[in-house]
Design a protein around this nucleic acid. Structure first.
Lengths: 122, 122
DNA sequence: CACATACGACTACAATCGTAAACGAAACGG
DNA sequence: CCGTTTCGTTTACGATTGTAGTCGTATGTG
């Protein structure tokens, strides 16, 4: 469960977080076509994710139905946490400041942020 | 310049972003002791960073003085950008919301954020 | 029932990464 | 001047990652 999920593996997880359980063929059909993956590649990734404990499978006749074991939010938290530790000394505020500087915040985002801050202050 | 910098390599970059130029020995002496790296490991990493174009070196007698070619802010922007794309659909606001939910924002952070929002709104 | 097919398991293989050791040349110390 | 230390360069080697291919078997099809 503490195993890291690679970039390519994440693509597979995203599919299963969106909808599960699915067969390998289903997953292959649903991954971003831009990846250009064949069925074999998806099968490899499913196998690795099983080994990592990120997925579980239940038998359905002669094939498997895959479902996520870890929640997306948990994965995201781990990834974000590592980034914050690595680049921002473990503090979140500097990350927000960075986002602001990079103009990655639209007017809507800022409005949203404002509401968020109001909420947090309570 | 567009080459990715790995986790271990980043440790070396951090030293040189803090102070440069430095010799390989200096860098080895300044990396986080928790890494437990020998001089050889640091030399490998410096070599790889040179190959990636993240560092440059100038001769100083028979050894080199290393200095960053890419700015820390640029690296951070790239890393954060990739994370935002990968996990938050390219939008920064959901990341901030995530940080809030994870209680990764202290009271001070929130105050800082508030000031930031006020600034952004102008 | 024979054969094509669909599946999962196993194998492959180059690139990157983490972590060094080996080697060769230059320089310093005595 | 000769051995020792110091550098940078080259080589090493297992783990992970990206991207499949192969193989054996269960299955559906005619």
């Amino acid at each position: 469960m503490t195993e890291r999920i690679s970039e390519a593996e994440l693509e597979v997880m995203e599919v299963l977080w969106r909808e599960a359980p699915l067969t390998a063929a289903d997953v292959a059909a649903l991954v971003d076509p831009a990846r250009g993956w064949g069925a074999a590649t998806v099968k490899t990734l499913l196998g690795r994710l099983l080994a990592k404990g990120a997925l579980a499978h239940e038998e359905d006749g002669r094939r498997y139905l895959y479902r996520p074991v870890i929640a997306r939010a948990d994965h995201v938290a781990g990834d974000v946490g590592r980034l914050v530790d690595r680049l921002f000394g473990g503090r979140a505020a500097p990350l927000v400041a960075h986002l602001a500087e990079q103009q990655r915040l639209s007017a809507d985002d800022i409005a949203e942020l404002e509401a968020l801050v109001r909420e947090l202050k309570k």
